[in-house]
Design a protein around this nucleic acid. Structure first.
Lengths: 175, 175
DNA sequence: ACCTGAACACCGTTCAAGT
DNA sequence: ACCTGAACACCGTTCAAGT
């Protein structure tokens, strides 16, 4: 006798995203997810292999979300950088998870397409990959340090971001 | 009747560093540390408040280690960047922990002194902080992406690092 | 076919009792 | 003064038994 489904994979991943954004990775327990979707913890294993697989799914959902917003921008380097940073500020835990977890590479690759397009216009085809790595590394490092409070409180962080973006573009054009 | 000490805080922190470097953060359990220093897990709480405090101590030890090596370099921007990257490659888990943990700020500040000195020579006093943040963000982001395998395998990663360093210096000088 | 309670291994942490 | 066994709460995961 079949039982009607009491939840779904999408609902579970959504619950995971909500919990992690609310309380950080350590609050993302199978029990917490089960509570939120109205089921007992063992039932989750019907849809998800284990907690690690759930983390990967949450990271992938974040990466796809980010990719959508980057694609919806005007595609300029400045726009991409600002969308990237504001996504990280709005979804700090999902953003962190994208880099902390293995298996989200495909979704991350999607997010880098608009960047490759923008950099190739500035530096030409030969340096596109190196330039994109320079920009991603900077933006990712900057935002991660901002999120983790590494910047302390002295100085204007918005201004530091604009300064970095400006000097980077200058450096790329000088090449 | 006093009992002779069977371990010490330094030994515990060292054990923590060894374990985390060997098997990642998830293997750094109180039990594993206790086993390594030859004591039962509850005894660790005589020297360390809890696991989080131990993580902070491990992160601080890493940051001080890094600061020592940066200070021992010739102080040029290129030397600092290469020392930074090679430290991360040799102690990937300790490096990650420095940014993942709260409370290691003082030790991290020590590590940034040589960088501030080098950048102020290039961009002058007004832009020193912004420029140092640009460089740290880039180097940290680059190395983290390298460690987490975000760069995939296409392209030459060493060359991408040199390219980034060169373009950054060009951008700073153009200011 | 999905859901559950019960169970197991493991972990962080506390504490009374030992020396 | 440090160390320990015992205990507790919590977590991930498995599985036989329910519907």
């Amino acid at each position: 006798m079949p039982t009607p489904d009491r939840t779904s994979l999408a609902e579970i991943v959504d619950a995971g995203r909500g919990i992690v954004e609310l309380g950080g990775l350590s609050k993302l327990t199978m029990q917490a997810v089960a509570d939120r979707v109205g089921v007992r913890a063992p039932s989750l294993y019907k849809r998800v292999r284990d907690r690690d697989a759930l983390l990967t799914l949450v990271a992938e959902a974040s990466a796809n979300d980010l990719a959508d917003r980057l694609e919806a921008s005007d595609g300029s380097l400045g726009a991409l950088a600002h969308v990237y940073r504001s996504f990280a500020q709005r979804h700090p835990e999902g953003f962190r998870l994208m880099f902390a977890v293995d298996g989200a590479e495909a979704a991350m690759a999607r997010a880098s397409v608009p960047l490759l397009r923008a950099t190739s216009e500035i530096v030409g085809p030969d340096a596109t990959l190196d330039a994109a790595r320079l920009l991603t590394a900077w933006a990712t490092g900057f935002v991660n340090m901002e999120l983790s409070g590494s910047f302390r409180f002295d100085g204007d962080i918005d201004q530091a971001f604009e300064y970095g973006l400006e000097r980077l573009v200058a450096g790329l054009r000088a090449g």
